[in-house]
Design a binder for these strands. Structure first.
Length: 494
RNA sequence: GGCCCCAUCGUCUAGUGGCCUAGGACAUUGCCCUCUCACGGCGAAAACCCGGGUUCGAACCCCGGUGGGGUCACCA
């Protein structure tokens, strides 16, 4: 389904980290472009000189790449419709503004910020909507305008919005959305600094870059009639619009930092795999059939249908993200997980870097044993600690709970002895020793297994005890069981 | 407040007038498996916001209300 005419874009403003809401719209654009065989372009909307930073641009790009949303045209890649940063397109906007001025679609406005604020206040107190229609400037004599400009009076350029009629936004997700023109004020297109406003730059660029579809957050829906007006005034055709709903926090408010993790980087730090975030976000409100939900990017793209995207806002559910992440984690091979784990272990200081170096095979075996139990990559360091190091510290209370039993006191030393006497240290021989002893004493094996597990891992939960013991190794296992047996002797007899 | 959008289990959703005694997934929970945990298997509880229409028949269509969200800048 190749369609070179299909062109979509993700157009973030580099004023912070890439937000999950942002990735999701980027994701929908990417999915749509892939599905249609069109182009997905990245455009940086950095016209707000005060808030845009180079650091954000870099973060944006790396976050996008991390999750796998590579762009076909844009910064670093180039393309036929560049430049792709709005700060590099100022001349184009000035030219377009001039065209609008010349054709009577825009005018110079000399009202000061203070005057405008006063007007708004007045309207508000009178209970009228504060819609600015240019006053004396809207239809000022060209001569007069010229004089003021030459006198050095500051001005903005405003769009001359029709005072009657309506503007209809044809939205792929919501159908036609109608706006009365009287409710749209004469908005600024060029600031007094001779730089464009968002609405103007975005509309111009979408036209100039020949976007066929504009897929973006629905917080832009109320801006859209203005952009439609600009397209029409400039004489360009309209792209199709699709406004996707916001991503909300559990309190149904727009998702933000105070809901915990909200940026792509934070999720990465919290042990979320890129493919898991990708999959989860794609599912969120995209209207895929619900029978299955683990899909690779290309599969997601194949099934994507923009008109199926739900119109209602979706609550971001970390639990479900974690569940999907667990699926992806479990699918990794032990080798891949070991590669993932090694740097984490070294960094957290759980394991000596040198030891890791020469013992990747063992780490791999450990990961094979543990992977079913992982939910997030960040679970790894804590879950492997007891596979390394020597004697363990025991929580006194739990120790008592595990060992202060008649049967354990009587038989644990014997268990230790039998383990020590084992000719081969394998899962099978270990199991046989333990079960054998339990059988002789006519007790369930669990009466030995639980205290042994605690002795050897310092925990009450772990993977299967026999395989764990084997992987722990004879030395370490015996060191710890002896240590535990020693402590057991010191337990006060009551 | 004006304008705009939205409304099915706690959450994401399926559903486009009869197939719905409303399906799935996550979360919750019972049981089974079992050396604990996890996995897996089998169950349970859990929703069509309200009120009017239209229709032989509405979760699905229309209107109103209510609720939630967005937006009202020389920010994007």
């Amino acid at each position: 389904m190749d369609n070179p005419k299909v062109r979509v874009r993700y157009a973030p403003s580099p004023t912070g980290m890439l937000h999950v809401g942002g990735v999701r719209t980027a994701l929908f654009n990417w999915l749509f472009a892939r599905k249609m065989g069109g182009a997905y372009v990245l455009r940086i909307e950095d016209t707000d000189l005060a808030r845009s930073t180079e650091e954000s641009v870099e973060q944006l790009k790396s976050s996008l790449r991390w999750i796998g949303l590579d762009w076909d045209e844009g910064p670093e890649i180039g393309g036929d419709h560049g430049p792709y940063r709005q700060t590099e397109r100022f001349d184009l906007y000035r030219e377009a503004a001039k065209k609008l001025l010349d054709t009577g679609h825009a005018y110079h406005d000399f009202a000061t910020t203070e005057e405008l604020a006063a007007l708004r206040d007045k309207a508000r107190t009178e209970g009228r909507p504060p819609i600015y229609t240019g006053g004396e400037y809207r239809d000022m004599e060209p001569r007069e305008t010229q004089n003021r400009i030459e006198a050095g009076e500051p001005y903005t350029v405003r769009f001359k919005t029709p005072r009657e009629g309506q503007t209809v936004v044809e939205d792929l997700i919501r159908g036609p959305v109608t706006f009365e023109n009287v409710n749209i004020e004469d908005f600024v297109i060029m600031k007094s600094s001779d730089t464009p406003t968002y609405n103007f730059a975005a509309a111009y660029d979408d036209a100039a870059m020949e976007m066929s579809h504009v897929i973006r957050g629905d917080d832009h829906l109320s801006n859209t009639p203005r952009q439609v007006l600009i397209h029409e005034a400039l004489g360009y055709g309209l792209p199709a619009f699709a406004h996707v709903p916001q991503v909300l926090g559990p309190d149904k408010k727009k998702l933000s930092k105070r809901h915990g993790a909200a940026s792509v980087e934070e999720f990465a730090e919290q042990g979320i795999l890129p493919e898991a975030l990708f999959n989860y976000l794609a599912l969120l409100g995209a209207g895929y059939a619900a029978d299955e939900e683990i899909f690779a990017p290309n599969e997601l793209a194949k099934r994507f249908r923009i008109e199926k995207v739900s119109g209602n806002p979706a609550v971001f559910d970390e639990k479900k993200l974690t569940a999907i992440n667990a699926v992806y984690l479990h699918r990794q091979s032990p080798e891949e997980l070991a590669m993932l784990a090694a740097p984490m272990l070294a960094e957290s200081g759980t394991v000596d870097a040198a030891e890791l170096q020469h013992d990747m095979p063992r780490l791999t075996q450990i990961m094979a044993l543990l992977k079913e139990r992982l939910n997030r990559a960040t679970d790894i360091p804590d879950s492997v600690t007891y596979f390394y190091g020597g004697e363990l510290e025991y929580d006194p209370e739990e120790f008592q709970k595990q060992f202060d039993k008649e049967f354990v006191k009587e038989n644990f030393p014997e268990l230790v002895a039998r383990l020590e006497a084992l000719p081969d240290w394998t899962e099978a021989t270990i199991e046989e020793a333990i079960r054998g002893l339990a059988a002789e004493k006519e007790k369930g094996a669990r009466h030995l297994i639980h205290p042994l597990r605690f002795a050897v891992t310092g925990r009450t939960v772990s993977a299967g005890l026999f395989e764990t013991l084997q992987l722990l190794g004879r030395e370490r296992s015996l060191l710890r069981t002896r240590h535990a047996a020693e402590k057991l002797r010191q337990l006060p007899t009551q």
